[in-house]
Computed example of a mutant assay.
Amino acid sequence: MTTARIDIDVLRVFRGPGGAHGNTLGVVRDGALVPDRASRQALARQLGFSETVFVDDPERGVLDIFTPGLRLPFAGHPLVGAAWLLDVEVLELEVGDVFARDDGEFSWITARAEWAPPRTLRQYGSPAGIDALEVPPPGEWVYAWSWQDEAAGRVRARAFPGRGDGVDEDEATGAAALLLTHRLGRALNITQGRGSQILTAPGADGTIDIGGRVHLEEVRTVEFETVDVPAG
């Protein structure tokens, strides 16, 4: 192994109305500094964010997304954050092109529900029931939700990845919000975790817009060990 130093942009994505909360995201702007999948996985595990993004082409918006335990072809909060940081209109992913825009307060992406990894969407009777939940043991990925105000499309939610990789609860999850919006077929205003806010709106063409506030918290320099990959 070889020890290296690298700068990580640390963002907060899906912050609440007062600017608090939001899900932490690590972005490696120069993905070439961590070129192989094993080293990227090791760095994502070291950082411990729910997701870390490696930028392979900032102009075309080519990204690689990792949780502490696995690589993801699509994830909501990393794409909203990366689109805001890179200021691009299109992100190129394996699943397809994700269009992005910014309205001054919220950063938005347009995606399809079939791109999201499977989640168990579990409805509860009240927001109090959601607040009282304890972290379940590792197993299925659960998005627990209830109506706060059904007429207004306001939802209370919490997310439990169940992966056993150190992220017991995900503060704000765009992919799960995408799936819930697809199931309910309507625009939603979701309060997730401690107070993060996710906005969604289904389009006429089957796409769904996902939006939230993004803030750059810091640029952090970290030391990490690259994983030696055998030639061939």
Rank of each mutant, 00 (worst) to 15 (best):
A113Q: 08
Q123V: 06
E223P: 00
A20C: 11
T24Y: 01
I210G: 04
R158F: 02
R119Q: 15
P68A: 09
G195W: 00
Q148S: 14
R183I: 12
P127R: 08
P35L: 03
Q41K: 15
A38Y: 14
L121D: 04
F66S: 00
D36T: 10
G185F: 09
L133M: 12
E171S: 02
P118T: 12
T221H: 13
A20T: 11
G206K: 02
H182T: 01
S146E: 04
G69D: 15
F14M: 03
P202E: 02
V34P: 09
L79R: 04
T226Y: 02
S126D: 04
F54P: 11
A175W: 01
V10H: 09
G81L: 10
G31N: 09
T191L: 08
W84H: 15
I8E: 03
P138S: 13
R194N: 04
E223D: 05
P58L: 08
I208E: 01
M1R: 06
D168L: 08
D64A: 08
E114G: 03
R12L: 11
V53R: 11
P17C: 13
D131N: 07
A113D: 09
V219S: 05
E59S: 10
R40Y: 12
G129K: 06
R220P: 05
I109L: 12
G129Q: 15
P58K: 03
V135N: 05
D168Q: 06
G81P: 03
R194G: 10
V53W: 06
E218I: 14
R194H: 04
P17S: 08
G22L: 04
E59H: 13
T226C: 07
V53P: 06
V167E: 05
G16W: 05
G195E: 00
D131C: 08
D165M: 06
G166Q: 07
V90K: 12
D209I: 00
F14G: 02
A231H: 14
P136C: 13
S107F: 10
H182E: 06
